[in-house]
Design a protein around this nucleic acid. Structure first.
Length: 228
DNA sequence: CCCTGATTCGC
DNA sequence: GCGAATCAGG
């Protein structure tokens, strides 16, 4: 098996989605876990909690047996005493014309790592990740805490099929990526009986049989999403 | 043992 | 560029 653009895209999506290298390898088929990891690294998308990479801990907030701060005589009685969060009731005048999700607050010294990035990754074209209903799947995007503002229909997608335009008769194939300004859905008439149009059914249900094991019925119209 | 991801290194 | 072998933590 070779790393075609499509397979690479799948790898990216799954990797970013938090699937393990094994799972990804299994999904893609034809490659080993190592191959996936190796490729992921070469693609530059590594990191992610690895068991053998926990080195680096300067100040550990452990049970602090030693109080390196003999200074403050007053015992810190910080939080936990105010159940009611005094919402600053921000002025919040009007929704900015450009709801830019900027994280530009506080010090500018050094705090580039924004660990919590509730990114919504779409397995766009080619990615198509099947998932059994009760299947595992890491904690989805932890609700974005940020105060979001009124969704604003961008003129750019005004004539494109938005999430709200979806129905049983039009193709739901995502075009672009969620979050991006021009994200929309295919929107053309569906292939009767499927959520996508004929063209995208071809993409969504293309057979990828490598992995010997499962691969139940090849007959049906299409393979259909896995059932495990 | 099993699992993980990271790295190395011959190809 | 690729991925098996190897390493190393959980």
């Amino acid at each position: 098996m070779s790393w075609t653009d499509e397979r690479i895209e799948q790898l990216r999506s799954m990797w970013e989605k938090g699937l393990t290298a094994s799972q990804i390898a299994d999904e893609l088929g034809g490659v080993s876990r190592n191959a996936v990891i190796g490729k992921a690294h070469r693609l530059g998308l590594k990191s992610r909690p690895s068991p053998v990479k926990a080195t680096e801990k300067v100040a550990k907030p452990v049970k602090a047996p030693a109080a390196p701060k003999p200074a403050s005589p007053a015992p810190p009685a910080p939080r936990a005493a105010a159940p009611v969060a005094p919402r600053p009731a921000a002025p919040m005048p009007k929704p900015e014309p450009k709801p830019v999700v900027e994280a530009s607050d506080e010090d500018s010294s050094e705090a580039p790592p924004k660990p919590d990035a509730p990114r919504i990754v779409s397995i766009g074209p080619g990615g198509f990740i099947r998932q059994g209903p009760g299947d595992q799947q890491a904690p989805i995007p932890p609700a974005p805490p940020r105060r979001l503002v009124p969704a604003k229909p961008s003129p750019e997608i005004a004539d494109k099929t938005s999430l709200l335009d979806l129905n049983d008769r039009i193709c739901r194939w995502p075009m672009g990526h969620p979050g991006e300004p021009d994200f929309h859905f295919c929107g053309v008439a569906v292939n009767p009986g499927f959520p996508y149009c004929v063209e995208h059914c071809g993409r969504a249900y293309q057979a990828q049989l490598p992995r010997g094991t499962r691969r139940p019925p090849p007959p049906a119209p299409f393979g259909g999403p896995r059932v495990r």
